[in-house]
Design a protein around this nucleic acid. Structure first.
Lengths: 136, 136
DNA sequence: CATTCTGTAATTGACTTTATTACAGTACAA
DNA sequence: TTGTACTGTAATAAAGTCAATTACAGAATG
């Protein structure tokens, strides 16, 4: 994964899991993560599109989990923030006249798929509730 | 992994494995990958530090594998290019006054280590020779 | 000793990510 | 019904990252 969005999204969800039911404001969340509130709202918007978060506009509004923390797998969080490939995106444009260059992206892609499968298998095993449980 | 260095290093090593014994110039390699020769030399320099490549300066110089392709595990390549953490580096500076923020980097790091372990396990199983064997 | 390489530093440029500004719209509460 | 406190989102600016490029010293060869 290429971005810092995974930790941000997981932080957001962890905060919500730790205060289940309450609506948290983007300003409060941004204060905990120490980033800009607009970025928090963007991530919340994304997580909402993936059915992990519900939010409420207006005064006393905010966001909360859309389902209980033990129903949220970390693999869902991964999918929600995942855009590019795990290990360096195959955006390289190798020389098609070279016998190695011509084929390497195909084989790299296979390798990445294999590895990403292993990664997802791990993330699948841990729920947000499991993750929160580590905090004391 | 955050960078495009893994595919570049693997490409370099694959070229060398496919023409075992020969010294390849950074210009030739750069032509196959379609990147700048200086970047190739930087990667070669790094791979040499990890004992995967030997190089020779001067006219008719170049680089070649330091050991046979079936002795090189892809996990070694990963280690050679790995600097930052796999999933978004914990460069966030969460608020230490927040009970979640205070602890989250620790738990994120544990999670990353766990996942990286799974990834390395996969890469450990494949040698450079295995990777090259896929090419026909 | 000219040539062809590596090795490496320094700079520039392209791109990506995050912060910031701005503002419309929504819900609540006095 | 109006002020306030929020979300949602777009647009822009600032910061950071990564690769390309330039430059050049040094090594090996013929």
């Amino acid at each position: 994964m290429n971005n810092g969005r995974f930790p941000i999204s997981l932080h957001i969800l962890t905060l919500m899991a730790s205060s289940a039911g309450e609506l948290l404001s983007s300003d409060y969340i941004a204060g905990s993560i120490n980033i800009n509130p607009v970025l928090v709202r963007k991530e919340i918007s994304n997580l909402r599109n993936f059915g992990l978060i519900e939010s409420k506009e207006g005064k006393n509004g905010g966001a909360t989990l859309a389902k209980s923390a033990d129903k949220i797998r970390l693999s869902e969080v991964y999918h929600a923030v995942q855009q590019a490939s795990l290990l360096g995106n195959s955006k390289n444009k190798p020389n098609p006249d070279c016998p190695i260059g011509k084929q390497i992206n195909l084989h790299l892609d296979h390798l990445y798929e294999d590895i990403e499968g292993a990664l997802l298998h791990r993330l699948e095993k841990m729920s947000l509730a499991d993750f929160l449980r580590q905090f004391q």
